[in-house]
Amino acid sequence: MSMERYNAGALENLINELGKLPGIGPKSAQRLAYHILKSSKEDVSNFAKAMAEVKEKVRYCSKCFNITESDPCNVCSSTKRNKNIICIVEEPLDIMSLEKTGSFRGVYHVLMGSISPLDGIGPEDLKIKELLRRIEPEKITEVIIATNPDVEGEATALFLSKILKPLGVKVYRLALGIPMGASIEYTDEVTLARALEGKKEL
């Protein structure tokens, strides 16, 4: 005996599609779908347009793999930036955080992840070959590795420094230690040890 359907097919479709989003369970999907149903026609068409546009217009920069609407991206095509210094990050969103600081005037390279054997991600799955291809033609003299300060990020940084150093590039790692506003009493021993290693003369 088949179950009788009370819901409109279109609404059910929308619930299914929303349910595919990360962190959205069936109940949340229902709530969101109902909210969309109640919204004005204009709001909904703007929302749909924004979604279609993002897929159409936004792509990865062919040089640094940053998210961009123009290829090469604004950072790579800017004349004001020092093109001999590359900052290596794991994800495009990391660039946004670094740009907010306003302290970095070089260019970027996004790896699209970190070496993680537990997930089956090796160096071949990252944009390392593309990075190596940039070193000579762009006359890169300095590299700052800004991968995450976790075990995967550290291993990726070590791996990169091993292959970059023989190319005559100066390799730096982003400083690690106690965050601003934290207290030493509550800092764990591993973080504190890293802070001591990276001590700085005043």
Binding site: I115, S116, P117, L118, D119, G120, I121, G122, P123, E124, I128, F159, I163
Partner: peptide
């Protein structure tokens, strides 16, 4: 296992 292949590619990279 996913990790054994990655282990190989890390060791033989380049």
């Amino acid at each position: 296992l996913k990790s054994l292949k990655v282990m190989e590619s890390v060791n033989s990279y380049g």
